[in-house]
Design a binder for these strands. Sequence first.
DNA 1: CTTGGTGCAAACATTTTGCAGCACA
DNA 2: TGTGCTGCAAAATGTTTGCACCAAG
Lengths: 161, 161
Amino acid sequence: MDLRPASSARSNLEDITIFEPLCAVFRRHLRSLGQKYTPERALILDALVRMDDLFQVEQLQDALRGEGRRVSKATIYRTLKLLQEAGIIQQVLVDAEQAHYQLAYGRRPQELLILVDTNEVIPIDVPELAAIRDRICAEHGLVAQEHRFQVFAEKAPSTGK
Amino acid sequence: MDLRPASSARSNLEDITIFEPLCAVFRRHLRSLGQKYTPERALILDALVRMDDLFQVEQLQDALRGEGRRVSKATIYRTLKLLQEAGIIQQVLVDAEQAHYQLAYGRRPQELLILVDTNEVIPIDVPELAAIRDRICAEHGLVAQEHRFQVFAEKAPSTGK
DNA sequence: CTTGGTGCAAACATTTTGCAGCACA
DNA sequence: TGTGCTGCAAAATGTTTGCACCAAG
């Protein structure tokens, strides 16, 4: 299944809600599928915009539970899939164990700095990558869709021992 | 568990066997753990250097089976973990479903072009990324260990509908 | 009524682990 | 004789699916 956002990367603005509330985007996508904007879906969308940057399904469910809201994992997974299709969130490949997600709507593609000692993930901004990406695609006769850049780093010097 | 290679990215040479055969690297790592270089481990190492670039556990097992060699998945997983520790292979995050691996020893960090239509993966070479990576780490007071760059592209124009 | 949504539990797929038996120093 | 390795089958993990029931037009 292809869950690449239908159309994201609108600009380099951080605050995209000035364009349109996310729930409107989501509603529109649901309508186009003949589906409904249910309370559970609203809760999930609402919770994830308040997650800091990267989140996992478990975390999202915990956050909801913390507010006294119970939503089943099945519903969360189903909803995250819809949100991906709508271009509102994006899967981020951080490790092979679990899926990580990130708010994606209106954002530039993901560029991450990952501290290997602590597993901390710091979003970074590397504007020149878009040009590099486009150049490479052009050389292959392709059209770039998005890219990912992850830097693994550590605090202490030297990578060995 | 941290499975980052103990020390990779030795140079930009493609053919690293001129430095040292991989099996010697692996043997040394095993010895340092008080473990043995068994026939199964040799078979797995041998098979994976002949895989073209990216491979999955299933594929590797099939390749072995094709030569009449049977090695259990358990052993393959255990061996791949050792090979990662030794810096000989590297996990590549291509999709969230399954782990993909790649020969890593002596290679520059992974830079991939992924065709979203066909799921084809083309290794690319983007030398300037190392400098970008190092600059970013320096700005954060960190030491770069490795990086990943993945470009998703398609043949037809436009990413939207 | 009909369509779709939810939770639960079962199913799945991949990876890990426990264990009995094997191999080699 | 012991240490480690293998295969098998069972367990563990994360995700998906089938189904019965619920909700809203």
